[in-house]
Design a protein around this nucleic acid. Structure first.
Length: 905
RNA sequence: GCCCAAGUGGCGGAACUGGCAGACGCGCACGACUCAAAAUCGUGUUCCCUUACGGGAGUGUGGGUUCGAUUCCCACCUUGGGCACCA
């Protein structure tokens, strides 16, 4: 009975119930196509994109939402600010995770993929994400991959002209070869050494008649050395767990494969590659034009690894027909080269080794071959090597120097041979010490009197800072080390002993995979060699197969589908493309997602691209993000697109770890969320309990966007409480009154307009956590304003209007519901962002801390615009200051404008 | 080994360009409401001394520059990431 009395006396307002309002609005938005991208108009465009996910059977965790919620907030924020926004989503559906799941579950990957991506879409909708679903696609559907194949064909039919520094149709190369042979192209590379990767290094100098004499098969083979997509034999990384080759970019420093974690093995196989080395220079250079995290830019620069130096030829004593060519970044130290080292794989090793050394050298080479790459390149291991018995002549001083073989020289970098300068290279120094070889100083370090290498306890390298003076170096002697490199190249070129060269660490990008679940490579092996499938026959569809298991021979399961493999003109290529191919252009397809007649309408792609804001994990630093840049540049060169970089701005979100610490190797650590560890928190469970808006709010509030952070299960309820307060202060401000408070309408208005300024600034800076906290502060201010009795004022109405608009990007469902209940027309998400009134936001008075000798002793409040002298006087008179100054003389009074006063005694 | 980032209360974190350290939230404590609980509202919450007023210390460690340092400089420690015989 008492309960009844209480009820009638104090009617409860309807409570905030996200599970009721969220599905309601989600359905309405979807039915109205509220977030459908509009056609180009007078507004500026904004393309905000997430790294498109591969749909896994585990679905999304709250960690994944860390990516998708902020981009959604940005998309909504830009819409309200009057931009024409494209915010799409699709699926990177091909690839090993789905295929491995299919093998394990004995299911069809097509079926799994549809099921998994449907679940992702359900979860995305659950989070209230404002994707334009009319543009969704799946990279494993032939409506998409036929265009991946089309681009492959364009790249296959292109070569890189070092004279223009860009890709051209291969037909134009054929014309040139018929008229001039390879001479002009090779000359161009000599003249522009940074173009070293434009064509294969194996291309010989041939005349036009030699080209004309070639059979079609020979010509095709020859052209493979130029094509930007080419099949070639090379040493590749074989992943024994996934039974597939992987790209260099997919192997970490420990030699482990990116996905499976298996130690890769080296195999020499014929594989499909993209000639990304042709673009090395542009890929490095154009990094200056993007707004990306410095870390990612640095990683790409390091991966490309451009270095400048010279190639120098050394004559082999007693063998006039062969020379050893070395690459060095320090040609100025050539006078200090006291021996040479060949890589064990170097083709000249067998030829130059003297009979008495043959057995020893062969044993060493065999031993080196047997070692794993990881063991071989272990920097902590002592240097090993053997003398070949042969000597070479140092071209600049005519000295005879011994030629050694050692595994610290890699065949895969430079020329596979080095001139060893032990005095100025630590590796050579270690080697010379161990084997008693001559060490000669050619750079005299600053502060060292002697010019004899016996004073050196380690190699001296000036690291390009130019400290030191050249000694024992013929014409270079006496020169500053800083100027010596260019001078040395001049000397070497004049002597015709070598020339300026550029080298890159990056290697060609291996794209073929011996797997079923990928885009078929549109190539047929004919009598005349590899030819592309005619564009009119695209797509080359993936046939159905009985078994998805990789074969024991390391071939794709597709080899067993004879009907598919055999065509009237030849056999189909059975390798498929790695998913990097799909992701290298998907962001362009969104501009014209369902075009069946062409890859996309250039008008659409050039309007929407480049992506204005691209958000995803940092683990793709040199994978997807490098590959995409290359494809963009190829398509630019071929006139397909009109931009040179695909992603204007890039941001990496931090990871979310499991909430509970676990003991691992004796330490307490937060682990990654993973199904196998059983510590995954799903958005589904959080939304069911607290609603999507609270989850979204917490995803933003949890930490700085880029920081890795453990999930806190108390975090979402905290945000939920805030949303509850918003609900009550907007709809029933007179409930739950607090204590008495004072606030003027001017102060309320100031708080509202300061909130606009702050939140706008924070969104632009990706500082979502402080944006949320500013909204919480503004909400707290409204409660205080309510207690001060301002709810009937126009300023109150304005403040509430501003609050709901500010809230719309973060809590779209709650904002929509409040907007409707306020009697305003649908939809809040079609409203404009509130405009801050600078005058309203301005402070009337400021509080200035007063320090004595740097310690806070008091505060004074002065009107804005009070002059410096008055402030200093007021500060000196303040009670706190007087207590500490006493009658001691004031030495100095410092006033930092509007900041603080410091009295020094 | 080299390069980069970070280190702030019990916890996540905030602090524009060298100027009030700890915003906001969580947690905790106390109080109001209630028969009671939940919810809500209010107050407090870096540590130490003090009933209080107030004072002292304090942003990984040690030093430096400065009237003033979480912020700049030097050395070191720890954690995370990247690279690793690239000639």
């Amino acid at each position: 009975m008492s309960g009844l009395v209480a009820f009638s006396r104090c009617p409860m307002s309807e409570r905030y119930n996200p599970s009721e309002i969220e599905p309601k609005w989600q359905q309405r938005w979807l039915a109205d196509e509220l977030y459908k991208t509009e056609a180009a108009d007078a507004r500026p465009k904004y393309y905000v994109l997430d790294f498109y996910p591969y749909p896994s059977g585990d679905g999304l965790s709250v960690g994944h939402a860390r990516n998708y919620v902020p981009t959604d907030v940005v998309a909504r924020f830009y819409r309200m600010r009057g931009y024409n926004v494209m915010h799409p989503m699709g699926f990177d559906a091909f690839g090993l995770p789905t295929e491995n799941a299919a093998i394990k579950l004995k299911a069809n990957p097509h079926v799994l993929n549809e099921k998994y991506s449907a679940n992702y879409i359900r979860q995305f909708k659950l989070l209230g994400l404002s994707y334009d679903w009319s543009r969704v696609f799946n990279s494993s559907h032939d409506s998409f991959y036929r265009w991946t194949q089309w681009i492959f064909i364009q790249i296959f039919n292109s070569w890189y002209d070092p004279r223009l520094g860009q890709a051209r149709p291969i037909s134009e190369l054929e014309t040139e070869l018929a008229a001039h042979g390879t001479g002009r192209i090779l000359d161009a590379i000599d003249a522009k050494p940074e173009q070293i990767g434009a064509i294969a290094r194996s291309v010989p100098r041939i005349e036009a008649d030699a080209w004309q004499a070639k059979t079609p098969r020979e010509r095709n083979r020859f052209l493979m050395q130029f094509r930007l997509a080419f099949r070639g034999e090379s040493t590749v990384n074989w992943d024994p767990v996934d039974k597939v080759v992987v790209a260099n970019e997919e192997v970490d420093a420990q030699g482990r494969a990116w996905r499976s974690g298996a130690l890769v093995e080296k195999k020499t196989l014929k594989q499909w590659n993209f000639r990304i080395t042709a673009y090395a220079d542009r890929l490095a250079r154009d990094l200056d034009t993007v707004n990306w995290p410095q870390k990612i830019v640095t990683m790409q620069r390091n991966w490309i690894g451009k270095s400048q130096g010279a190639e120098v030829d050394f004559k082999i004593d007693g063998d006039a027909s062969e020379k050893i060519r070395v690459y060095t970044t320090r040609p100025d130290t050539l006078w200090g080269a006291t021996f040479m080292v060949l890589s064990p794989e170097h083709p000249l090793v067998a030829r130059i080794t003297t009979p008495e050394k043959r057995a020893e050298v062969e044993a060493y080479v065999a031993h080196a071959r047997a070692m794993t790459d990881v063991d071989r390149t272990d920097v902590s291991k002592a240097k090993t090597g053997v003398f070949t018995g042969a000597t070479a002549t140092n071209p600049v001083n005519g000295e005879r120097i011994p030629i050694w073989v050692a595994d610290y020289v890699l065949m895969s970098y430079g020329t596979g041979a080095i001139m060893a300068v032990p005095a100025h290279d630590q590796r050579d120094f270690d080697f010379a010490r161990k084997f008693g070889l001559t060490i000669r100083m050619v750079i005299q370090p600053p502060g060292v009197e002697s010019t004899d290498a016996s004073v050196l306890t380690a190699a001296y390298s000036d690291h390009g800072d130019g400290l030191g003076r050249m000694v024992n170096s013929g014409p270079l002697t006496g020169m500053d080390a800083g100027k010596s490199i260019a001078a040395a190249i001049d000397v070497i070129e004049e002597m015709k002993a070598g020339q300026r060269r550029v080298n890159y660490r990056i290697r060609d990008w291996l794209i073929s995979r011996q797997r079923y679940w990928g885009t078929p490579i549109p190539i047929i092996h004919t009598e005349d060699g590899e030819v592309t499938v005619p564009e009119s026959d695209l797509p080359v569809r993936l046939p159905d197969v009985e078994s998805y298991e990789p074969t024991q021979t390391g071939e794709s399961p597709l080899v067993q589908v004879h009907d598919w493999v055999n065509t009237p003109t030849g056999q189909r290529e059975t390798d498929t493309m790695a998913t990097w191919a799909c992701s290298s252009w998907y962001y362009m397809r969104f501009a014209d997602a369902h075009n069946g007649a062409r890859v996309f309408d250039p008008k659409e792609v050039n309007y929407w691209l480049p992506v204005d804001m691209y958000v995803g994990g940092a683990e793709h630093a040199v994978l997807h993000l490098l590959y995409s840049r290359m494809w963009t540049k190829v398509l630019y060169d071929l006139g397909v697109v009109g931009f040179i970089e695909p992603f204007k701005s890039l941001r990496n979100q931090g990871m979310i770890l499991a909430p509970e610490q676990k003991e691992v190797d004796g330490r307490m650590v937060y682990e990654k969320m993973s199904k196998s560890k059983g510590n995954v928190i799903t958005p589904d469970e959080v939304v069911a309990e607290h609603g999507a808006d609270a989850l979204r709010g917490y995803e933003m509030f949890i930490s700085d966007f880029s920081q890795t952070v453990p999930w806190n299960t108390n975090g979402v309820p905290g945000v939920r409480r805030w949303l509850d307060r918003v609900w009550r202060i907007v709809l029933s401000p007179m409930d739950d009154r607090g204590g008495p408070a004072t606030m003027t309408t001017r102060e309320l208005r100031r708080a509202a307009h300061q909130a606009i300024q702050k939140i706008e600034h924070d969104f632009d800076a990706f500082a979502f956590n402080t944006a949320v906290s500013s909204m919480m502060e503004f909400t707290n201010t409204l409660f205080k304003a309510r207690d001060a009795g301002l709810t009937e004022t126009p300023e109150w109405a304005e403040a509430i209007d501003i609050l709901v608009r500010l809230l719309a990007p973060i809590a779209p469902h709650l904002a929509e519901e409040l907007w409707e209940r306020m009697g305003l027309p649908y939809s809040i998400h079609k409203q404009t962002w509130p405009k801050a009134d600078a005058a309203a936001a301005a402070e009337d008075s400021i509080e200035i801390p007063v320090q004595v000798n740097g310690k806070l002793r008091d505060r004074i409040t002065v009107a804005v615009g009070t002059d410096e002298e008055t402030i200093k006087t007021l500060a000196a008179q303040s009670e706190g200051a007087r207590r500490f100054v006493g009658d001691k003389p004031i030495r100095q009074v410092i006033y930092a404008k509007g900041r603080l006063v410091n009295i020094v005694i």
